[in-house]
């Protein structure tokens, strides 16, 4: 399903006017529940509408959000649409803060992943004003209004802002993303030594939080589901460049990266590098791996 739907101007509460039905047969209890909820909804949403309206008018200190809504199960939401939310603004407020406010105050069914609120769990990569960003790391004051919040493009939408991450995880796990030294020190207290330079070399690549922003921004990945994508290649880089692993293992890693849907697919468009919230030089890493692969092939011959 595409997330780029024609915009239908709706308020937070259009749901109230629509009769709730289902395309697929549901369990009787579920059906009954849906019906009852639809009835009770109108009243409550009227209240919410008034509140929202009060906030929207006369108060400069609100932020206007337009949020993508979709739920395969709930009519009125089966057809993707945008809802408007007017959220009181406070200094320091992020897009995630505003979404939480909107959910807790106006519509508890507004659904999005989030947890850490500090750009480390990687749950809330979203498409905000036409660009992949982390909701928690994006200050509202840096954005033009209305702020458009959509799920990550090029991924299956499960509901509202939640997308299916399985394909992303599969790609991440396809590159044997684990340290695997050719040999380990004998003693259980003996360290493998690593130079500062080498640690510095892999440092940026280890910062990935698996948010999926890069993959979503990549045209190649969008057109070719088999392409490993920038995050997985970066993960492989992290190990291929780690001098503790040994040459055999490195050769094996380069073989994986050289496969048909590996590094050579990248057309150096830099979109991944631009959106990465952890400032990882993804394109550079991919280019470097291409050079490594060429080098090792020459050696091989």
């Amino acid at each position: 399903m595409s997330t780029h739907v024609p915009e239908t101007e709706t308020e937070t509460d259009t749901e109230a006017e629509t009769e709730v039905e289902h395309s697929e047969p549901l369990a009787p209890a579920q059906e009954e529940r849906m019906r009852k909820k639809a009835e009770a909804r109108a009243d409550r949403e009227e209240r919410a509408r008034q509140e929202a309206a009060e906030r929207a008018t006369g108060d400069d200190d609100t932020v206007h959000l337009k949020v993508f809504r979709f739920d395969p199960e709930v009519e009125g939401k089966q057809e993707p649409r945008f809802d408007d939310f007017h959220v009181p603004y406070e200094k320091g407020m992020t897009v995630l803060d505003a979404l939480i406010y909107a959910r807790d105050t106006f519509d508890s069914s507004l659904t999005f992943r989030h947890s850490c609120r500090q750009a480390i769990c990687g749950s809330d990569a979203l498409f905000i004003n036409g660009r992949q960003r982390l909701g928690c790391k994006t200050q509202l004051s840096d954005l033009d209004q209305p702020v458009r919040v959509e799920p990550l493009p090029h991924a299956e939408v499960e509901k509202d802002l939640v997308v299916d991450m399985d394909h992303f995880y599969d790609q991440m796990e396809a590159v044997e993303p684990y340290f695997d030294a050719d040999e380990l020190p004998d003693g259980e207290l003996d360290e493998q030594r690593q130079t500062r330079e080498n640690r510095e070399k892999v440092k940026m690549s280890t910062r990935c939080i698996w948010c999926g922003a890069c993959m979503s921004s990549c045209n190649i990945a969008a057109g070719n589901n088999e392409y490993l994508g920038p995050a997985a290649i970066n993960k492989a880089y992290r190990f291929a460049m780690d001098e503790r692993e040994g040459t055999e293992r490195k050769q094996h890693r380069l073989n994986i990266l050289e496969q048909e849907n590996g590094v050579w697919r990248c057309q150096t468009q830099f979109s991944c590098t631009e959106v990465c919230p952890k400032d990882i030089p993804l394109t550079e890493h991919i280019q470097e791996l291409k050079r490594e692969a060429v080098k090792s092939n020459l050696k091989f011959w």
Binding site: Q192, R193, R196
Partner: peptide
């Protein structure tokens, strides 16, 4: 040290420890 053997990217001293 087990974490180190699993490749965890600890900061390093001059001598590599």
């Amino acid at each position: 040290i087990q974490l180190e053997h699993w490749g965890m990217a600890f900061s390093r001293e001059e001598d590599g420890r």
